[in-house]
Design a protein around this nucleic acid. Structure first.
Lengths: 188, 188
DNA sequence: GCCGACCGACCGTCCGGACGGCATGTCGCA
DNA sequence: TGCGACATGCCGTCCGGACGGTCGGTCGGC
């Protein structure tokens, strides 16, 4: 494995974090290279040293996001007991289990998704592939296909509604929605 | 009531249609005044005669979209039989009943939502209000709150996944999802 | 003394918006 | 009926600013 100086990786991560922060706080339109550089405590030249173009920055943002998605979802799947409906229940947990680090994860996801899609819809292709992977897992989960996909749609809805700031259920409602979805995730 | 020449209204509508077309075909980043004007067969000056700024254009886009949303949803609600779960079933129909004019409606919604939110997240406030209105109707629909909101989340997910081009169920899967959601929309 | 991280000035381009002008039509008035 | 004053829908040019990206240069470590 090539040895990469730690400082470089730190700066790259700092820049990606800064990009997400800018989008989260000031919207997609404010995502300029100068704004990101300033938020990361780096000059514009320094930023462009790490990401050769804005598109490269957005691509890296999407890649990191998808990796985070995949790791998070797989962790939930691993936490569910074996048997039919496991992946479907992982979707429920992924969308409706509020934990501090998940809140920030959602903000990161939203920022990356929105900014990349705004620049070029083709940039979120990795997200589409990850979604397809989850769909495949869910279709082979031992449930009626309609039930599993209804749960997936609900999980998507919870998350994407948060992306646009449409709404977010409070704690008690989240529990109630979770119960309703779990009733769909039972073996037929 | 003031008499408004018909030609003006036509041109305004043509411009709004053109804006949606540009976004749908070339993405949010391509939504410039010049591109919209060209697609509408109007000069940039002519466009700015009807919409004093880009923000005014986007505001009008969102307003038209919300009106369309509201009319469509209310039509589905009116078509459902009275009794508990009516609004919840209207959500299901709204998201999962494919009809030609609804496909184009979805494209319009997606284009308006994405472009307005990209320019300024505050511009989609009317959408948030409309969503809140539907949530209120659903919360008072005679079902367990968790069930009704789970259905709403699924409807949101189906639509918003389409907005980002993540996926869209085919006809048979749509029927299966519909059946699963309807099982949640039964009186408790 | 080389190399990689980073800087900051600079450039070309694009975009939003202002502005003055030009037709067409309408109304008041003689 | 004819005419002038004005409003309206639309055009096309121009400008200031912002933004993405280039490039020559600096500095510290190996």
């Amino acid at each position: 494995m090539l040895h990469q100086p730690t400082e470089t990786r730190d700066t790259r991560e700092r820049i990606l974090d800064a990009a997400e922060t800018v989008v989260a706080e000031r919207g997609v339109a404010a995502l300029s290279l100068e704004a990101v550089a300033a938020a990361a405590g780096v000059s514009k030249g320094g930023l462009l040293h790490h990401f050769r173009s804005k598109e490269a920055l957005l691509t890296a943002l999407v890649e990191r996001m998808v990796a985070e998605m995949r790791a998070g979802y797989d962790a939930f799947a691993a936490g569910e007991p074996e048997g039919p409906g496991r992946h479907t229940r992982a979707c429920i947990a992924w969308a409706l289990r509020p934990s501090p680090e998940q809140r920030t994860r959602d903000l990161r996801l939203a920022a990356a998704l929105l900014s990349a899609h705004a620049h070029d819809p083709g940039l979120i292709e990795p997200v589409r592939r990850e979604h397809a992977r989850i769909r495949a897992a869910i279709a082979d989960d031992g449930l009626l296909p309609g039930h599993a996909h209804a749960v997936l749609a609900a999980a998507d809805g919870i998350f994407l509604a948060k992306v646009f700031g449409l709404w977010s259920p409070d704690e008690t409602l989240a529990r109630a929605i979770e119960a309703a979805l779990r009733s769909l995730a039972k073996p037929c």
